[in-house]
Design a protein around this nucleic acid. Structure first.
Length: 565
DNA sequence: GCCGTTTTCGGCCCGACTGTTTTCAGTCG
Protein backbone atom coordinates (compact mmCIF):
# COMPACT_ATOMS: atom_id res chain seq x y z
CA UNK A 1 0.00 0.00 0.00
CA UNK A 2 1.19 3.43 -0.83
CA UNK A 3 1.66 5.96 1.90
CA UNK A 4 -1.01 8.29 0.53
CA UNK A 5 -3.54 5.47 0.72
CA UNK A 6 -2.43 4.66 4.27
CA UNK A 7 -2.80 8.24 5.41
CA UNK A 8 -6.17 8.54 3.68
CA UNK A 9 -7.45 5.33 5.30
CA UNK A 10 -6.26 6.46 8.72
CA UNK A 11 -7.97 9.83 8.45
CA UNK A 12 -11.15 8.16 7.26
CA UNK A 13 -11.15 5.87 10.26
CA UNK A 14 -10.84 8.86 12.56
CA UNK A 15 -13.80 10.44 10.77
CA UNK A 16 -15.89 7.29 11.15
CA UNK A 17 -15.11 6.97 14.85
CA UNK A 18 -15.90 10.62 15.47
CA UNK A 19 -19.20 10.03 13.70
CA UNK A 20 -19.99 7.22 16.13
CA UNK A 21 -19.20 9.62 18.92
CA UNK A 22 -21.91 11.90 17.65
CA UNK A 23 -19.57 14.71 16.65
CA UNK A 24 -21.21 17.19 14.29
CA UNK A 25 -18.65 18.59 11.85
CA UNK A 26 -15.34 16.95 12.58
CA UNK A 27 -16.22 13.69 10.82
CA UNK A 28 -16.73 15.53 7.55
CA UNK A 29 -13.54 17.50 8.06
CA UNK A 30 -11.49 14.31 8.48
CA UNK A 31 -13.16 12.61 5.52
CA UNK A 32 -12.61 15.64 3.35
CA UNK A 33 -8.93 15.63 4.25
CA UNK A 34 -8.88 11.88 3.56
CA UNK A 35 -10.32 12.29 0.05
CA UNK A 36 -7.91 15.11 -0.59
CA UNK A 37 -4.89 12.95 0.31
CA UNK A 38 -6.28 10.06 -1.71
CA UNK A 39 -6.45 12.11 -4.90
CA UNK A 40 -3.17 13.89 -4.26
CA UNK A 41 -0.87 13.52 -7.24
CA UNK A 42 2.23 13.75 -5.14
CA UNK A 43 3.66 11.61 -2.38
CA UNK A 44 2.33 13.07 0.85
CA UNK A 45 5.77 12.55 2.44
CA UNK A 46 7.27 14.93 -0.10
CA UNK A 47 4.66 17.54 0.68
CA UNK A 48 5.31 17.06 4.38
CA UNK A 49 9.05 17.34 3.73
CA UNK A 50 8.52 20.77 2.23
CA UNK A 51 6.36 21.73 5.22
CA UNK A 52 3.38 22.33 2.97
CA UNK A 53 0.83 19.86 4.31
CA UNK A 54 -1.49 22.72 5.22
CA UNK A 55 -1.67 23.74 1.58
CA UNK A 56 -3.63 20.57 0.84
CA UNK A 57 -7.35 21.39 0.69
CA UNK A 58 -9.06 20.31 3.89
CA UNK A 59 -5.84 19.95 5.85
CA UNK A 60 -5.33 22.52 8.57
CA UNK A 61 -3.07 22.78 11.57
CA UNK A 62 -4.64 19.92 13.59
CA UNK A 63 -4.91 17.37 10.79
CA UNK A 64 -1.54 18.42 9.41
CA UNK A 65 0.04 17.70 12.78
CA UNK A 66 -1.64 14.27 12.90
CA UNK A 67 -0.34 13.41 9.44
CA UNK A 68 3.17 14.37 10.52
CA UNK A 69 2.77 12.15 13.57
CA UNK A 70 1.63 9.27 11.36
CA UNK A 71 4.53 9.68 8.95
CA UNK A 72 6.99 9.92 11.80
CA UNK A 73 5.71 7.27 14.23
CA UNK A 74 3.46 5.10 12.09
CA UNK A 75 0.45 5.74 14.31
CA UNK A 76 -1.64 8.53 15.73
CA UNK A 77 -2.25 8.73 19.48
CA UNK A 78 -5.59 10.46 18.94
CA UNK A 79 -6.80 7.55 16.80
CA UNK A 80 -5.57 4.96 19.31
CA UNK A 81 -7.61 6.71 21.97
CA UNK A 82 -10.71 6.78 19.80
CA UNK A 83 -10.32 3.10 18.96
CA UNK A 84 -10.33 2.22 22.65
CA UNK A 85 -13.82 3.62 22.98
CA UNK A 86 -15.34 1.18 20.47
CA UNK A 87 -15.06 -2.49 19.62
CA UNK A 88 -13.10 -3.00 16.39
CA UNK A 89 -16.02 -4.44 14.41
CA UNK A 90 -18.18 -1.37 14.76
CA UNK A 91 -16.50 0.64 12.01
CA UNK A 92 -16.92 -2.33 9.70
CA UNK A 93 -20.60 -2.43 10.60
CA UNK A 94 -20.98 1.22 9.79
CA UNK A 95 -19.57 0.74 6.32
CA UNK A 96 -22.30 -1.72 5.35
CA UNK A 97 -24.87 -0.24 2.98
CA UNK A 98 -27.82 1.28 4.82
CA UNK A 99 -26.05 1.35 8.16
CA UNK A 100 -24.69 4.69 9.25
CA UNK A 101 -23.24 5.96 12.52
CA UNK A 102 -26.61 6.36 14.22
CA UNK A 103 -27.74 2.83 13.51
CA UNK A 104 -24.36 1.30 14.34
CA UNK A 105 -24.35 3.12 17.64
CA UNK A 106 -27.85 1.85 18.46
CA UNK A 107 -26.76 -1.71 17.69
CA UNK A 108 -23.91 -1.30 20.12
CA UNK A 109 -25.79 0.45 22.91
CA UNK A 110 -29.14 -1.31 22.75
CA UNK A 111 -28.09 -4.77 21.60
CA UNK A 112 -24.39 -4.99 22.51
CA UNK A 113 -23.81 -5.91 18.86
CA UNK A 114 -20.13 -5.28 18.10
CA UNK A 115 -19.72 -6.27 14.47
CA UNK A 116 -21.24 -7.85 11.37
CA UNK A 117 -21.16 -11.40 12.72
CA UNK A 118 -22.91 -10.40 15.94
CA UNK A 119 -25.49 -8.47 13.95
CA UNK A 120 -26.32 -11.55 11.91
CA UNK A 121 -26.71 -13.56 15.11
CA UNK A 122 -28.92 -10.89 16.70
CA UNK A 123 -31.17 -10.83 13.65
CA UNK A 124 -31.45 -14.62 13.68
CA UNK A 125 -32.32 -14.58 17.36
CA UNK A 126 -35.09 -12.07 16.69
CA UNK A 127 -33.51 -9.51 19.00
CA UNK A 128 -34.22 -6.60 16.67
CA UNK A 129 -37.96 -7.14 16.67
CA UNK A 130 -39.92 -4.57 18.58
CA UNK A 131 -37.16 -1.98 18.71
CA UNK A 132 -38.40 1.47 17.73
CA UNK A 133 -37.83 2.20 14.05
CA UNK A 134 -36.86 -1.35 13.09
CA UNK A 135 -39.74 -2.87 11.12
CA UNK A 136 -39.66 -6.17 9.25
CA UNK A 137 -38.56 -4.52 6.02
CA UNK A 138 -35.65 -2.78 7.66
CA UNK A 139 -34.51 -5.93 9.45
CA UNK A 140 -34.53 -7.75 6.11
CA UNK A 141 -32.32 -4.99 4.66
CA UNK A 142 -29.87 -5.34 7.53
CA UNK A 143 -29.71 -9.07 6.94
CA UNK A 144 -29.07 -8.50 3.26
CA UNK A 145 -26.34 -5.99 4.04
CA UNK A 146 -24.56 -8.43 6.36
CA UNK A 147 -24.83 -11.36 3.97
CA UNK A 148 -23.76 -9.40 0.90
CA UNK A 149 -20.57 -8.38 2.65
CA UNK A 150 -17.60 -8.84 0.38
CA UNK A 151 -17.64 -8.03 -3.31
CA UNK A 152 -20.22 -5.25 -3.01
CA UNK A 153 -18.69 -1.88 -3.49
CA UNK A 154 -15.74 -3.27 -5.40
CA UNK A 155 -14.44 -0.65 -7.80
CA UNK A 156 -14.14 -1.50 -11.47
CA UNK A 157 -11.32 -0.51 -13.76
CA UNK A 158 -12.00 2.55 -15.87
CA UNK A 159 -12.00 0.51 -19.03
CA UNK A 160 -14.45 -2.11 -17.72
CA UNK A 161 -16.79 0.59 -16.40
CA UNK A 162 -16.60 2.45 -19.70
CA UNK A 163 -17.48 -0.56 -21.71
CA UNK A 164 -20.46 -1.40 -19.47
CA UNK A 165 -21.66 2.20 -19.50
CA UNK A 166 -21.32 2.44 -23.26
CA UNK A 167 -23.60 -0.51 -23.80
CA UNK A 168 -26.15 0.74 -21.24
CA UNK A 169 -26.23 4.15 -22.91
CA UNK A 170 -26.65 2.58 -26.33
CA UNK A 171 -29.56 0.44 -25.16
CA UNK A 172 -31.25 3.41 -23.53
CA UNK A 173 -30.88 5.55 -26.64
CA UNK A 174 -32.28 2.79 -28.81
CA UNK A 175 -35.06 1.44 -26.63
CA UNK A 176 -36.23 4.01 -24.10
CA UNK A 177 -38.33 7.15 -24.71
CA UNK A 178 -35.44 9.54 -24.06
CA UNK A 179 -34.12 12.65 -25.71
CA UNK A 180 -30.67 12.89 -24.25
CA UNK A 181 -28.53 10.30 -22.49
CA UNK A 182 -25.17 11.12 -20.91
CA UNK A 183 -22.75 9.55 -18.50
CA UNK A 184 -21.77 11.54 -15.40
CA UNK A 185 -19.90 10.61 -12.24
CA UNK A 186 -16.33 9.48 -11.86
CA UNK A 187 -16.42 7.71 -15.23
CA UNK A 188 -16.93 11.06 -16.93
CA UNK A 189 -14.04 12.38 -14.88
CA UNK A 190 -12.02 9.38 -16.10
CA UNK A 191 -10.99 8.25 -12.67
CA UNK A 192 -8.68 5.24 -12.77
CA UNK A 193 -11.28 3.17 -10.99
CA UNK A 194 -15.03 3.61 -10.88
CA UNK A 195 -17.24 2.65 -7.95
CA UNK A 196 -20.61 3.15 -9.60
CA UNK A 197 -22.13 4.53 -12.77
CA UNK A 198 -24.23 7.68 -13.05
CA UNK A 199 -26.42 8.05 -16.11
CA UNK A 200 -28.49 11.12 -16.83
CA UNK A 201 -31.41 11.31 -19.26
CA UNK A 202 -34.07 13.76 -20.31
CA UNK A 203 -37.51 12.33 -20.90
CA UNK A 204 -41.12 13.27 -20.18
CA UNK A 205 -42.03 9.71 -19.22
CA UNK A 206 -39.51 8.72 -16.54
CA UNK A 207 -41.45 5.67 -15.40
CA UNK A 208 -41.26 4.21 -18.93
CA UNK A 209 -37.50 4.82 -18.98
CA UNK A 210 -37.13 3.01 -15.64
CA UNK A 211 -39.17 0.08 -16.92
CA UNK A 212 -36.99 -0.32 -20.00
CA UNK A 213 -33.85 0.11 -17.97
CA UNK A 214 -34.77 -2.40 -15.25
CA UNK A 215 -35.60 -4.99 -17.90
CA UNK A 216 -32.12 -4.92 -19.47
CA UNK A 217 -30.47 -8.33 -19.18
CA UNK A 218 -27.44 -7.09 -17.26
CA UNK A 219 -29.62 -5.63 -14.48
CA UNK A 220 -29.79 -7.98 -11.51
CA UNK A 221 -31.97 -6.05 -9.10
CA UNK A 222 -33.68 -2.73 -8.61
CA UNK A 223 -32.54 -1.21 -5.35
CA UNK A 224 -34.80 1.78 -5.31
CA UNK A 225 -37.04 3.73 -7.63
CA UNK A 226 -38.63 7.14 -7.17
CA UNK A 227 -40.16 9.65 -9.55
CA UNK A 228 -36.81 11.01 -10.78
CA UNK A 229 -34.27 8.39 -9.84
CA UNK A 230 -33.68 4.69 -10.04
CA UNK A 231 -30.82 2.68 -8.59
CA UNK A 232 -30.04 -0.80 -9.89
CA UNK A 233 -27.29 -3.35 -9.36
CA UNK A 234 -25.84 -5.09 -12.41
CA UNK A 235 -24.99 -8.76 -12.51
CA UNK A 236 -21.31 -7.93 -11.94
CA UNK A 237 -22.14 -5.99 -8.74
CA UNK A 238 -21.73 -2.56 -10.30
CA UNK A 239 -24.32 -0.10 -9.05
CA UNK A 240 -25.96 2.28 -11.53
CA UNK A 241 -27.89 5.43 -10.71
CA UNK A 242 -30.22 6.56 -13.47
CA UNK A 243 -31.70 10.02 -13.17
CA UNK A 244 -34.31 11.79 -15.25
CA UNK A 245 -34.19 15.57 -15.44
CA UNK A 246 -35.95 18.25 -17.46
CA UNK A 247 -33.98 19.78 -20.36
CA UNK A 248 -33.90 23.24 -18.75
CA UNK A 249 -31.97 21.73 -15.83
CA UNK A 250 -29.82 19.30 -17.77
CA UNK A 251 -26.59 21.28 -17.52
CA UNK A 252 -26.96 21.83 -13.80
CA UNK A 253 -27.71 18.16 -13.22
CA UNK A 254 -24.84 17.04 -15.42
CA UNK A 255 -22.48 19.32 -13.54
CA UNK A 256 -23.86 18.24 -10.21
CA UNK A 257 -23.67 14.50 -10.83
CA UNK A 258 -20.28 14.64 -12.49
CA UNK A 259 -18.71 15.92 -9.29
CA UNK A 260 -16.34 15.47 -7.72
CA UNK A 261 -17.83 16.07 -4.32
CA UNK A 262 -15.04 18.42 -3.35
CA UNK A 263 -15.28 20.35 -6.62
CA UNK A 264 -19.03 20.76 -6.03
CA UNK A 265 -18.70 21.83 -2.43
CA UNK A 266 -16.28 24.53 -3.50
CA UNK A 267 -18.60 25.58 -6.30
CA UNK A 268 -21.63 25.85 -4.06
CA UNK A 269 -19.85 27.88 -1.48
CA UNK A 270 -18.72 30.24 -4.27
CA UNK A 271 -22.36 30.52 -5.36
CA UNK A 272 -23.45 31.28 -1.83
CA UNK A 273 -20.86 34.01 -1.54
CA UNK A 274 -22.34 35.60 -4.67
CA UNK A 275 -25.86 35.49 -3.26
CA UNK A 276 -26.76 32.61 -5.56
CA UNK A 277 -27.97 29.11 -4.90
CA UNK A 278 -26.66 26.10 -6.77
CA UNK A 279 -28.27 22.69 -6.85
CA UNK A 280 -28.94 20.01 -9.46
CA UNK A 281 -31.79 22.08 -10.90
CA UNK A 282 -29.83 25.19 -11.68
CA UNK A 283 -28.39 28.39 -10.35
CA UNK A 284 -31.02 30.61 -8.75
CA UNK A 285 -31.05 34.16 -7.44
CA UNK A 286 -33.95 34.46 -5.01
CA UNK A 287 -36.59 32.40 -6.78
CA UNK A 288 -35.40 33.01 -10.35
CA UNK A 289 -33.33 30.46 -12.22
CA UNK A 290 -30.40 32.21 -13.91
CA UNK A 291 -28.69 29.14 -15.38
CA UNK A 292 -29.23 25.41 -15.76
CA UNK A 293 -29.64 24.26 -19.37
CA UNK A 294 -25.93 23.82 -20.05
CA UNK A 295 -22.83 23.35 -17.94
CA UNK A 296 -21.26 26.37 -19.63
CA UNK A 297 -24.17 28.54 -18.39
CA UNK A 298 -23.82 27.22 -14.88
CA UNK A 299 -20.11 27.96 -14.67
CA UNK A 300 -20.45 31.28 -16.46
CA UNK A 301 -23.11 32.45 -14.01
CA UNK A 302 -20.55 31.89 -11.25
CA UNK A 303 -17.89 33.83 -13.12
CA UNK A 304 -15.98 30.69 -14.03
CA UNK A 305 -14.88 29.00 -17.24
CA UNK A 306 -16.22 25.57 -18.11
CA UNK A 307 -13.96 23.01 -16.47
CA UNK A 308 -13.02 19.83 -18.30
CA UNK A 309 -14.56 17.01 -16.22
CA UNK A 310 -11.18 15.30 -15.84
CA UNK A 311 -9.80 18.08 -13.63
CA UNK A 312 -12.86 18.69 -11.45
CA UNK A 313 -11.25 17.49 -8.24
CA UNK A 314 -10.63 20.70 -6.32
CA UNK A 315 -6.95 20.00 -6.88
CA UNK A 316 -6.02 23.41 -8.19
CA UNK A 317 -8.51 23.98 -11.00
CA UNK A 318 -10.14 26.97 -9.29
CA UNK A 319 -6.80 28.61 -8.66
CA UNK A 320 -5.76 27.92 -12.26
CA UNK A 321 -9.02 29.39 -13.55
CA UNK A 322 -8.22 32.67 -11.86
CA UNK A 323 -5.35 32.94 -14.34
CA UNK A 324 -6.10 30.79 -17.37
CA UNK A 325 -6.94 27.13 -17.60
CA UNK A 326 -4.27 25.33 -19.64
CA UNK A 327 -5.58 24.02 -22.97
CA UNK A 328 -5.71 20.31 -22.18
CA UNK A 329 -4.86 17.65 -24.70
CA UNK A 330 -7.66 16.75 -27.13
CA UNK A 331 -8.06 13.62 -29.18
CA UNK A 332 -7.73 15.81 -32.27
CA UNK A 333 -4.23 16.88 -31.19
CA UNK A 334 -2.93 13.38 -31.69
CA UNK A 335 -1.08 12.88 -34.95
CA UNK A 336 -0.56 9.17 -34.62
CA UNK A 337 -0.01 6.24 -32.32
CA UNK A 338 3.48 4.93 -31.69
CA UNK A 339 2.56 1.50 -30.39
CA UNK A 340 0.05 -0.54 -32.36
CA UNK A 341 -0.05 -4.30 -32.68
CA UNK A 342 -1.58 -5.68 -35.84
CA UNK A 343 -4.69 -7.79 -35.28
CA UNK A 344 -4.56 -11.54 -35.76
CA UNK A 345 -4.42 -12.68 -39.36
CA UNK A 346 -2.33 -11.76 -42.31
CA UNK A 347 -0.04 -8.78 -42.12
CA UNK A 348 -1.28 -7.43 -45.43
CA UNK A 349 -4.91 -7.32 -44.18
CA UNK A 350 -3.76 -5.90 -40.90
CA UNK A 351 -1.87 -3.11 -42.59
CA UNK A 352 -4.87 -2.28 -44.76
CA UNK A 353 -7.15 -2.09 -41.75
CA UNK A 354 -4.65 -0.03 -39.83
CA UNK A 355 -4.19 2.38 -42.71
CA UNK A 356 -7.91 3.02 -43.05
CA UNK A 357 -8.33 3.32 -39.30
CA UNK A 358 -5.51 5.85 -39.11
CA UNK A 359 -6.86 7.74 -42.11
CA UNK A 360 -10.24 7.96 -40.43
CA UNK A 361 -8.60 9.48 -37.42
CA UNK A 362 -6.65 11.88 -39.60
CA UNK A 363 -3.31 10.61 -38.35
CA UNK A 364 0.03 11.30 -39.99
CA UNK A 365 1.79 8.19 -38.75
CA UNK A 366 1.39 4.89 -36.98
CA UNK A 367 4.09 2.85 -35.33
CA UNK A 368 3.53 -0.83 -36.02
CA UNK A 369 5.15 -3.40 -33.78
CA UNK A 370 6.82 -5.96 -36.02
CA UNK A 371 8.79 -7.95 -33.45
CA UNK A 372 5.92 -10.21 -32.37
CA UNK A 373 4.93 -11.23 -35.92
CA UNK A 374 6.02 -14.59 -37.32
CA UNK A 375 6.59 -12.82 -40.63
CA UNK A 376 8.49 -9.90 -39.14
CA UNK A 377 10.95 -9.71 -42.01
CA UNK A 378 8.32 -9.58 -44.75
CA UNK A 379 6.25 -7.17 -42.73
CA UNK A 380 9.21 -4.85 -42.47
CA UNK A 381 9.65 -5.03 -46.24
CA UNK A 382 5.98 -4.27 -46.76
CA UNK A 383 6.15 -1.29 -44.44
CA UNK A 384 9.19 0.00 -46.31
CA UNK A 385 7.79 -0.67 -49.79
CA UNK A 386 6.83 2.41 -51.66
CA UNK A 387 6.94 4.76 -48.71
CA UNK A 388 8.34 8.19 -49.26
CA UNK A 389 7.77 10.98 -46.79
CA UNK A 390 4.82 13.10 -47.80
CA UNK A 391 3.68 10.75 -50.51
CA UNK A 392 1.47 8.59 -48.43
CA UNK A 393 -0.57 9.24 -45.35
CA UNK A 394 -0.47 7.85 -42.83
CA UNK A 395 3.21 7.04 -42.70
CA UNK A 396 3.81 3.60 -41.20
CA UNK A 397 6.75 3.23 -38.84
CA UNK A 398 8.29 -0.04 -37.78
CA UNK A 399 8.72 -0.50 -34.04
CA UNK A 400 10.69 -3.24 -32.36
CA UNK A 401 9.42 -4.25 -28.93
CA UNK A 402 11.26 -6.46 -26.49
CA UNK A 403 11.64 -6.84 -22.75
CA UNK A 404 13.62 -4.27 -20.88
CA UNK A 405 17.12 -5.67 -20.42
CA UNK A 406 17.13 -7.61 -23.67
CA UNK A 407 20.30 -7.05 -25.66
CA UNK A 408 18.90 -8.46 -28.87
CA UNK A 409 19.45 -5.98 -31.68
CA UNK A 410 16.50 -5.06 -33.87
CA UNK A 411 16.88 -5.85 -37.58
CA UNK A 412 17.82 -3.10 -39.97
CA UNK A 413 14.90 -1.05 -41.13
CA UNK A 414 13.26 -0.60 -37.75
CA UNK A 415 12.54 2.98 -36.88
CA UNK A 416 12.65 2.80 -33.13
CA UNK A 417 12.60 0.54 -30.16
CA UNK A 418 10.06 -0.09 -27.43
CA UNK A 419 11.00 -1.77 -24.18
CA UNK A 420 8.36 -3.47 -22.10
CA UNK A 421 8.87 -3.64 -18.36
CA UNK A 422 9.51 -7.07 -16.87
CA UNK A 423 9.03 -6.35 -13.19
CA UNK A 424 7.29 -3.92 -10.90
CA UNK A 425 10.36 -1.75 -10.57
CA UNK A 426 12.90 -0.46 -13.06
CA UNK A 427 16.00 -2.69 -13.35
CA UNK A 428 19.45 -1.44 -12.50
CA UNK A 429 21.24 -0.82 -15.79
CA UNK A 430 19.83 1.76 -18.13
CA UNK A 431 18.65 0.39 -21.46
CA UNK A 432 21.13 0.67 -24.29
CA UNK A 433 20.25 1.55 -27.88
CA UNK A 434 18.06 4.42 -26.71
CA UNK A 435 14.50 3.13 -26.72
CA UNK A 436 11.86 5.63 -27.67
CA UNK A 437 9.27 4.23 -25.30
CA UNK A 438 8.94 2.23 -22.13
CA UNK A 439 5.74 0.24 -22.03
CA UNK A 440 3.59 -2.17 -20.00
CA UNK A 441 4.60 -0.77 -16.66
CA UNK A 442 3.09 -3.11 -14.08
CA UNK A 443 2.09 -0.41 -11.68
CA UNK A 444 -1.02 -1.57 -9.86
CA UNK A 445 -0.84 -3.47 -6.61
CA UNK A 446 -3.67 -5.96 -6.28
CA UNK A 447 -5.99 -3.72 -8.22
CA UNK A 448 -5.13 -0.63 -6.22
CA UNK A 449 -4.15 2.53 -7.93
CA UNK A 450 -0.46 2.75 -8.60
CA UNK A 451 1.66 3.77 -5.69
CA UNK A 452 3.12 7.19 -6.07
CA UNK A 453 6.66 6.13 -5.20
CA UNK A 454 6.80 3.40 -7.81
CA UNK A 455 5.58 5.76 -10.50
CA UNK A 456 8.24 8.24 -9.44
CA UNK A 457 10.96 5.62 -9.90
CA UNK A 458 9.80 4.81 -13.42
CA UNK A 459 9.57 8.47 -14.36
CA UNK A 460 13.12 9.05 -13.16
CA UNK A 461 14.33 5.96 -15.00
CA UNK A 462 12.68 7.09 -18.24
CA UNK A 463 14.20 10.52 -17.85
CA UNK A 464 17.69 9.08 -17.52
CA UNK A 465 17.12 6.68 -20.42
CA UNK A 466 15.79 9.47 -22.62
CA UNK A 467 12.64 7.45 -23.25
CA UNK A 468 8.98 8.30 -23.18
CA UNK A 469 6.30 6.64 -21.04
CA UNK A 470 2.91 5.43 -22.10
CA UNK A 471 -0.59 6.12 -20.89
CA UNK A 472 -3.14 3.60 -22.13
CA UNK A 473 -6.88 2.94 -21.75
CA UNK A 474 -5.98 0.40 -19.07
CA UNK A 475 -4.53 3.08 -16.87
CA UNK A 476 -2.23 1.84 -14.12
CA UNK A 477 -2.78 -1.76 -15.19
CA UNK A 478 -0.59 -1.11 -18.20
CA UNK A 479 1.10 2.26 -17.94
CA UNK A 480 0.93 5.59 -16.19
CA UNK A 481 -2.03 6.66 -14.15
CA UNK A 482 -3.06 10.30 -14.24
CA UNK A 483 -0.77 11.31 -11.41
CA UNK A 484 2.05 9.53 -13.25
CA UNK A 485 1.30 11.63 -16.31
CA UNK A 486 1.53 14.74 -14.20
CA UNK A 487 4.82 13.63 -12.72
CA UNK A 488 6.27 12.70 -16.09
CA UNK A 489 5.35 16.08 -17.52
CA UNK A 490 6.89 17.85 -14.56
CA UNK A 491 10.07 15.82 -15.09
CA UNK A 492 9.97 16.66 -18.82
CA UNK A 493 9.60 13.04 -19.76
CA UNK A 494 7.48 12.81 -22.92
CA UNK A 495 4.24 10.90 -22.64
CA UNK A 496 2.80 8.78 -25.41
CA UNK A 497 -0.97 8.32 -25.53
CA UNK A 498 -1.87 4.90 -26.78
CA UNK A 499 -5.21 3.52 -27.92
CA UNK A 500 -6.04 -0.01 -28.94
CA UNK A 501 -5.61 0.35 -32.67
CA UNK A 502 -8.27 -0.75 -35.12
CA UNK A 503 -10.54 -2.54 -32.68
CA UNK A 504 -14.10 -1.44 -32.16
CA UNK A 505 -14.76 0.37 -30.00
CA UNK A 506 -11.30 1.80 -29.44
CA UNK A 507 -11.13 3.25 -25.93
CA UNK A 508 -8.52 5.82 -26.99
CA UNK A 509 -10.72 8.41 -25.31
CA UNK A 510 -9.81 6.85 -21.95
CA UNK A 511 -6.07 7.20 -22.50
CA UNK A 512 -6.61 10.79 -23.56
CA UNK A 513 -8.82 11.29 -20.50
CA UNK A 514 -6.15 9.96 -18.14
CA UNK A 515 -3.62 12.30 -19.73
CA UNK A 516 -6.06 15.19 -19.25
CA UNK A 517 -6.54 14.20 -15.61
CA UNK A 518 -2.78 14.63 -15.38
CA UNK A 519 -3.22 18.15 -16.80
CA UNK A 520 -1.44 17.20 -20.04
CA UNK A 521 -1.32 19.76 -22.82
CA UNK A 522 -0.47 18.86 -26.41
CA UNK A 523 3.21 19.92 -26.29
CA UNK A 524 3.90 17.38 -23.55
CA UNK A 525 2.62 14.49 -25.64
CA UNK A 526 5.00 12.62 -27.90
CA UNK A 527 2.43 11.52 -30.45
CA UNK A 528 0.87 14.97 -30.65
CA UNK A 529 4.03 16.06 -32.45
CA UNK A 530 4.38 16.22 -36.19
CA UNK A 531 6.38 13.37 -37.61
CA UNK A 532 9.26 15.67 -38.48
CA UNK A 533 9.62 16.49 -34.79
CA UNK A 534 9.66 12.86 -33.75
CA UNK A 535 13.37 12.53 -33.02
CA UNK A 536 14.11 12.13 -36.71
CA UNK A 537 12.43 8.75 -36.77
CA UNK A 538 11.51 7.29 -40.11
CA UNK A 539 12.75 9.99 -42.39
CA UNK A 540 13.56 8.07 -45.47
CA UNK A 541 14.99 4.59 -45.85
CA UNK A 542 17.77 2.98 -43.91
CA UNK A 543 18.24 1.45 -40.51
CA UNK A 544 17.09 3.55 -37.60
CA UNK A 545 17.56 1.28 -34.69
CA UNK A 546 18.82 3.99 -32.43
CA UNK A 547 16.99 7.26 -32.46
CA UNK A 548 19.42 9.78 -31.01
CA UNK A 549 18.65 10.11 -27.34
CA UNK A 550 19.62 13.72 -27.31
CA UNK A 551 16.88 14.60 -29.74
CA UNK A 552 14.27 13.07 -27.49
CA UNK A 553 15.42 15.29 -24.73
CA UNK A 554 15.79 18.31 -26.94
CA UNK A 555 12.22 18.05 -28.08
CA UNK A 556 11.02 17.47 -24.54
CA UNK A 557 7.83 19.21 -23.52
CA UNK A 558 7.89 22.73 -22.21
CA UNK A 559 6.65 23.12 -18.71
CA UNK A 560 2.92 23.45 -18.68
CA UNK A 561 1.50 26.60 -17.25
CA UNK A 562 -1.05 26.41 -14.51
CA UNK A 563 0.52 23.64 -12.54
CA UNK A 564 -2.08 23.23 -9.86
CA UNK A 565 0.10 23.14 -6.86
C1' DG B 1 -11.65 20.75 12.28
C1' DC B 2 -11.53 23.80 8.35
C1' DC B 3 -12.09 28.10 6.24
C1' DG B 4 -12.63 33.22 4.48
C1' DT B 5 -12.19 38.90 -2.38
C1' DT B 6 -18.23 39.53 3.09
C1' DT B 7 -15.83 36.69 7.85
C1' DT B 8 -10.15 34.88 12.35
C1' DC B 9 -15.85 33.48 14.42
C1' DG B 10 -19.66 31.16 13.03
C1' DG B 11 -20.88 28.93 9.67
C1' DC B 12 -20.41 24.13 7.47
C1' DC B 13 -24.35 21.42 0.21
C1' DC B 14 -28.57 19.83 -0.29
C1' DG B 15 -32.01 17.02 -2.25
C1' DA B 16 -33.92 12.04 -3.08
C1' DC B 17 -35.43 8.01 -1.24
C1' DT B 18 -36.86 4.59 2.30
C1' DG B 19 -39.11 2.88 6.24
C1' DT B 20 -41.95 3.73 9.69
C1' DT B 21 -43.15 7.53 10.35
C1' DT B 22 -48.99 11.08 11.11
C1' DT B 23 -44.25 14.93 10.08
C1' DC B 24 -39.51 12.75 10.21
C1' DA B 25 -34.80 10.52 10.87
C1' DG B 26 -31.29 8.20 8.73
C1' DT B 27 -28.60 7.23 4.80
C1' DC B 28 -26.71 8.19 0.49
C1' DG B 29 -24.46 10.54 -3.18
Amino acid sequence: MGTNADVAATLREIGDLLDLNGERFKPDAYRRASRSIETLTEDVRKVAGRGELESIPGVGAAIGEKIREFLRDGHIAYLEKLRQQFPPGIVELMRLPGIGPKTARRFLVELQVEGPAELAAAIDAGRLKGLAGFGDRKIALFRQAVEARGPVGRRQSLRAAWSIATSLVERLRAEAPVERVEVAGSLRRRRESVGDLDILVTSNVPERVFEVFSALPMVREVKLRGPTKETVVLSDDLQVDLRVVEPAAFGAAWQYFTGSKDHNVRLRSLARDMGLRLNEYGVTREETRVAGASEEDVYRSLGLPWFPPEIRENQGEFEAAARDLPPLLEESHLRGDLHVHLPEGSSRDGIDRLRSYATQRGWEYVGVVVSDRPDAKELLDQLRAGQRPGTMTPWLLAAWEDPLGSDRLPPAGCDYRIHSAVGPDPPDPLPTHGPLLLTHLPLPEAGAEASAERVARWVEYARRAGAGLEVTPDGPQDGLDSSGVRRAIEARVPVSVRGAGPVVPDPLTLAVGLARRGWATAPAILNARAMAELTGVGRGPGPRTTPPRSSVRRTGPPRTGGSPR
